[in-house]
Amino acid sequence: MGTILFSALTLALAVFALTRRRLLWGVIGVGVHSLALAGLYLFLAAPDVALTQAAVGFGLVTFIYLLAVRRTGKLTVAAVETPCLIYQENERVAGLEWEILSRFGRQLHRDVEVVWASRAEVPALLQAGEVDIGAGAVFPREGEALLLSRPILPTRIVTGRWGPGPVGAVAGDRGQDFLPPGGTLYEDHAALAHALRRGEVEGAVVDLLHVRQWVLSGEIRPRETTDVEEAAFRLAVAPTEADVLRALDAFLTELEETGELAQLVERYVG
């Protein structure tokens, strides 16, 4: 009976460990898995093997994996596709925030991996530790406890009016907090722009960068805009990664001091 129970546990742990997205969880899962395997050896009348497996598999192997992961791990970024800041171009990622993140990853010797997400998903991904950094116009809403980096680029949240009709915003964006009653929420900025074009809504609470992008693309120009709040583009960091935040802030300060940040802003935002 014990054998079958431990077999199921061992298999479940192995499957759990090998299906994780995050390497750290995989390493911890495999460590616990080998501990369960040692228990199974005990039931299979092999105490010598069990002792060795427990000491080696749980202690030493897990630890050298942890050291190697810490030395070389990935930096996972949950990105909301945003013009100028982080976007896909010919199957490659580009943008101001991407440029900063890839240089930062290079400095830490860590690969940067981008997971595309909608704005509303980003806080949950950060809280669950699935990703390290959130990028792409992340303005914290009221009550969202996110760690934020130094400001990269100042901006404003504005209400743009195209007509007297209802107002829309993007779900999870800061604009949602300022949405007047009766407003509509959309999944992302593209859906909001589409609704504006069709006249479903006649106003939007968004950041200035998106308004500018819509104007530049020439299709929808607001009749008037009113400022709602001063804000700045920042990168969000998962609450468990305080040392990443420190390193990121130091890196951003360095970029500002050498004037490279201004060059990057000039290049991507203009």
Binding site: P47, D48, A50, L51, T52, A54, A55, V56, G59, L60, F63
Partner: peptide
């Protein structure tokens, strides 16, 4: 203990070495 009593009960040099390595860690 595991190293010294390895010939009498479960244990032996290999697990004892791994345990000592963990202790050093």
């Amino acid at each position: 203990y595991v190293a010294v009593s390895g010939h009498l009960g479960p244990g032996g040099g290999f697990p004892a070495g791994a345990l000592l390595g963990t202790a050093l860690l």
